[in-house]
Each structure stands twice: as structure tokens, then as C-alpha cells.
Nucleic acid binder design. Structure first.
Length: 511
RNA sequence: GCCAGGGUAGCUCAGUGGUAGAGCAGGGGACUCAUAAGCCCUUGGUCGGGAGUUCAACUCUCCCCCCUGGCACCA
């Protein structure tokens, strides 16, 4: 089995913003943790390229939907590269392999009698391309001018009868407390299930929306965008793919350990439609995925929106401060599940304080002292100095807490744990004052022990921070000449080890 | 109106029955290996408001206010 995790796939009707980037970085960080310290991992992310809004945006630009979607997709891909997102799979919903599997699923649900065709009639706004309900009526009981021409008409569509699985879903969610993380989000879902009634319309007639996957048994219709999009989680994991070598082995991946999504798409899409779809497709309860629901990044307390003009562009930030500084800030200053406030000032503060002053300086002073006093060769004599013993046991405790934090998806807590070790190591330097020990030949062994302790602590720190800031982590290991020593346990550096050259890894950002 | 999350030091947040905590910012000090970084000490809060339970409440109960999200209702 591999540790399988996914992010939401982003809708390709506009440019990526900080929220998109946060989610992918979160997934990447969790993925890197498992890949480095746990076992085989598969991280899937991607783009949602079908649907009405993409078709509309394409029309505005005057290009075909596919071309438009591909242009936007290229921007996302370039950004994920820049942000060091290490993805094992790429879910693009116009991929022919996806189309094939979606059609297989539709056919199979149809064969099982899970899809029904029915007529719906009502008022329809051509301009907004949607059916209107009484909610859209104004004070006078009329549909306002914002809807343009409103006509009454009847349309036939395919429906997925959700309501018949309501009791199953309710029972499932109630008996599986960690289906939704964090736990408080589960309440919203349970409320939503209580209100669940009726069918989900899963088709659009082609004359109204052509940009989608065709129904295999009714070619006048294409799938509704959510139905198409949600299935990416299984189709790109190799579901019903037979022997296709370009896709992973589904049995090695499923069930997904975490679908990472924003709070806006928990209800109804991921919390209701998705488990019911899987249930109807024949997945047993033990094969249901888990949902990790994150919050939003606000700006100065306000929601980020195009109309407010306060959209944060991750691309610009990555260019300005570096991908790792951005990754560190987003992971350190946010509690997974809760909303946060984005502030460039805090990003700089976090970088200077945590990365440059605390960690960067520790690395630099440690290697510098090793070179200055021992020509960069570290020795590991036996010791019984209480300060050194203390930091060694702290390192073990920190590693344990770090692992537990990651198991609970509490990335900020994992980082905090690592920084406790950073602080302790900096304190140790002052306690032992190697520059004094170096002047006293009688203290030579203690100096060796101190320098070893510091170098080994720095090695462990490089590993601990590697999921969050992969590039600087690699640089630290390189300066230690310890690229190959990946064991997350005290004592990896052998006695007699020769360290490499050092130079500051996190230059301070001038205020 | 209902459900949930939040309201704790200037800022970001932790704490959950026993005399208020961390980091950053501010002030002072000793040191010098280091990215004028680090280390030590320190100023600073009636823990949203009110009532209650208790020997004791930030922590439990009730009422209220504000912010955020979801839902409902009205228009």
C-alpha cells in the first residue's frame, strides 16, 4: 500500500491565487513527510477543465474551451513547479484516460439503475444559463433585469438519486468520526445530510453546454462538472484502468488517506455527493476516503476577492522571497482547518526571525566552529555531560512529537517542535562556549562532544524541515556533507566525518 | 433564528478548575563561534461583558455582545 493523498483540482477559468497555492503546498508537505519518513507515497493534484465557466471564459477570450483550459493549466503547472510541488500524478479532466473511466462509471451506474432520466420545468435565464427559483425573485415577485430574458421551459436530464442513500450516509458519517478532519467540520456535514432530499442533476444537454464528457448511453448530454471532477480522485489512481501502465495500481492506493479540500467544497460536493457516488459504485464502508478540510487565507480580515482587488498572487511572492520562504510562512502561520490572515509583513518577520536568525545562524555558526577548531572533522567521544545528554533526549522527544503532529495533519505543530530543538541548540552554544573550550587543551574531548552534538542536531533539523523547505534543507545537508545520511534518529553522523563548505543559507531580508 | 468556529500581552496565537503562557515587537545586560545573528534578564493582560456553581474559574453553567463560516427565514 502507498500513502495516497490528493488536493482539490483547480477550476481552470482563472489564474491561481494564494489559496490554490496553500492547498497544494499543504498536500506537498504532507506528501514529502510520508515519502521521507514513512513509506511509499502517491500525491495527486490537478485541474478541473470542463464546465460552464470555462466555456464562458473561453468565449470571452475568443478561443476554444480546450485551448483556454490548456493555457490556464500551463500557468498552474508552472506555478507548482516554482513552488516545488512534488506530484506523483496529474489529474487533468480533459485527459482521455479520465474521460474513458468517467464513461465507464456512468455506464455502470446506469446499468445498476442508479441514474434516471426526468423532466424538470421552470424559469430559465438564458444570460446566466441557470434555472431560477423563487429565491431569485425581487420584492415585486418578478425576476429582475440582471437575469436578462427569462423563459419558462422544460428540460429533460439525468439524475442521480441521492436521497435513497441518505440513511446510509448519515450512519456512515456518524459512525466514522475521522471521515472529516478537523472534527468540528463534521457537524456542518451532518446538518447538511439531514436536509438532503431529491436527486442530483448530473447532466447538461449539449445544446446548452457542450464542454464536458459525453454520456455513453445518451450522447446528447454531457456530465455535470462536479460528477466529472470528483471522479478524478479514482480515475487518476487507476480505477477501472485495467493494465494501463501509465496509471498507478488502484489497489495499492485506495482508499485515499486524505482528500485535502477547502471548507467551501465540503458541503455538498465532497461530504455528500462523493461518498454517495462511491457507495453507489459499490465501494464498501472500509474503502471510503477521508477528508482533510482547510480554512481560507483572508487579507486584513477581509475575504480575498477579485472585486476587492486584494487577491494575493503566489507567483509574485515566490519570485520576491523565494518559494521556500513562502512555503514556510504558509505552513507555520496557519493552523490546518482554521482561517488565517495573510500578511507580507509577517512572512518577512517569520523568515528573518525563524529561518535567518534561529535556524540559519545555528547552521552557520555550527559548521564554522567545526571548521575553525577541528578543520571540519567531527569526532564523537563518549560523554556524560548533562547538557549534551539533555539535548540528545530532547531531539528524540521532538522527533516523536513531530511524527505525531504529522499523523494528525498538524503541520504547524510539527514545525514548532523542530524549533524547540533549534532554540535548545542555540542555547547550548552559549552554555558550552566552544570558543573558550578551544583555548583549553584539557577540554579538548568536551569540545569534540559539543561540536558533534551541534552538528548532529543540525543534521536532524535539516531532515525535520525538509518537507516544508526542501531546497534549504538540501543545502544544509550538503554543507554537512550528509546528503546520504537520511535516518531520522540521533547518531547518524559517523565519528571522523568531514563536513563541507558553509555559507549563509537564509540571507536576511532587509526591512 | 439555528449550528459551528473564534473573541487571552502592541501583533500572531497556546492554555482548559488551583496564584495568567510562548513567539515576535519594546527595555536592560553579559558574551563573541556566527547572517549586528544568538544567549540571559525584563516591561506589558480586570483572559469580550454580566450573573451563577465552587474553598478556588481563562477553564464548568446560564444570559448577552462582537467577528467568521454554514443553514434557514424575511425582503
Amino acid at each position: 500500500m502507498k500513502y495516497f493523498l490528493t488536493t482539490a483540482i483547480d477550476y481552470t477559468n482563472g489564474d491561481p491565487h494564494i489559496g490554490h497555492a496553500y492547498e497544494k503546498i499543504l498536500g506537498d508537505v504532507i506528501g514529502r513527510y510520508h515519502r521521507s519518513f514513512d513509506g511509499p507515497t502517491f500525491f495527486l493534484t490537478g485541474v478541473d477543465q470542463h464546465g460552464q465557466k470555462v466555456q464562458q471564459a473561453a468565449q470571452k477570450t475568443g478561443v476554444q474551451p480546450l485551448e483556454f483550459a490548456q493555457r490556464v493549466t500551463a500557468k498552474f503547472l508552472a506555478l507548482w513547479d516554482k513552488l516545488r510541488i512534488q506530484k506523483d500524478g496529474w489529474a487533468a479532466t480533459t485527459d482521455p484516460r479520465h474521460k474513458q473511466t468517467v464513461q465507464k462509471v456512468l455506464q455502470s451506474l446506469y446499468d445498476k439503475g442508479e441514474l434516471v432520466k426526468a423532466k424538470y420545468s421552470g424559469f430559465y435565464s438564458v444570460r446566466q444559463e441557470q434555472f431560477l427559483t423563487d429565491k431569485e425573485r425581487n420584492e415585486a415577485g418578478e425576476f429582475g433585469p440582471e437575469w436578462g430574458e427569462v423563459t419558462f421551459f422544460e428540460e429533460e436530464n439525468w439524475y442521480f438519486p441521492l436521497a435513497k442513500h441518505k440513511e446510509w450516509l448519515k450512519n456512515f458519517v456518524e459512525t466514522h468520526p475521522d471521515f472529516v478532519i478537523p472534527e468540528f467540520r463534521r457537524n456542518e456535514l451532518i446538518n447538511a445530510i439531514e436536509r438532503l432530499s431529491g436527486n442530483l442533476c448530473v447532466s447538461r444537454p449539449k445544446e446548452r453546454l457542450s464542454w464536458g464528457i459525453e454520456f455513453p448511453f445518451d450522447p446528447d448530454y454531457v456530465t455535470y462538472v462536479w460528477f466529472d471532477a470528483l471522479l478524478n480522485y479514482v480515475t487518476f489512481a487507476g480505477y477501472l484502468a485495467g493494465e494501463d501502465p501509465s496509471l498507478p495500481n488502484f489497489n495499492e492506493l485506495w482508499p485515499c488517506r486524505a482528500h485535502i479540500i477547502g471548507k467551501d467544497i465540503l458541503v455538498p460536493a465532497h461530504g455528500v455527493y462523493w461518498p454517495i457516488m462511491l457507495h453507489a459504485m459499490g465501494f464498501p464502508d472500509e474503502q471510503m476516503p477521508r477528508l482533510l478540510v482547510h480554512g481560507w487565507w483572508n487579507v486584513a480580515g477581509a475575504k480575498m476577492s477579485k472585486s476587492l482587488g486584494n487577491v494575493i498572487d503566489p507567483d509574485i511572492l515566490a519570485d520576491k522571497y523565494g518559494a521556500d520562504a513562502l512555503r514556510y510562512y504558509l505552513m507555520r502561520d496557519n493552523v490546518v482547518g482554521q482561517d488565517s490572515d495573510f500578511s507580507e509583513e509577517r512572512l518577512v518577520m517569520r523568515y528573518n526571525s525563524d529561518l535567518a536568525n534561529d535556524l540559519g545562524n545555528l547552521v552557520n555558526r555550527t559548521i564554522n566552529m567545526c571548521r575553525r577548531y577541528r578543520n571540519g572533522v567531527i569526532a564523537s567521544p563518549p560523554w556524560n555531560d548533562p547538557d549534551l545528554t539533555a539535548i540528545r533526549s530532547l531531539a528524540n522527544a521532538v522527533i516523536e512529537r513531530y511524527r505525531q503532529a504529522f499523523e494528525r495533519f498538524e503541520v504547524h505543530a510539527a514545525i514548532e517542535a523542530a524549533w524547540e530543538l533549534v532554540a535548545k541548540a542555540n542555547t547550548l552554544v552559549e552554555q558550552k562556549a566552544p570558543w573558550k573550550l578551544a583555548k583549553d587543551p584539557a577540554k579538548s574531548e568536551l569540545l569534540d562532544a559539543v561540536l558533534y552534538t551541534l552538528a548532529e542536531t543540525v543534521r536532524l533539523l535539516a531532515l525535520l524541515v525538509s518537507p516544508v523547505i526542501p531546497a534549504p534543507s538540501a543545502k544544509i545537508l550538503e554543507q554537512l556533507a550528509a546528503e546520504q545520511i537520511r535516518i531520522l534518529q540521533w547518531g547518524g553522523l559517523p565519528s571522523g566525518h568531514q563536513l563541507g563548505e558553509h555559507s549563509p543559507i537564509f540571507p536576511r531580508i532587509a526591512a
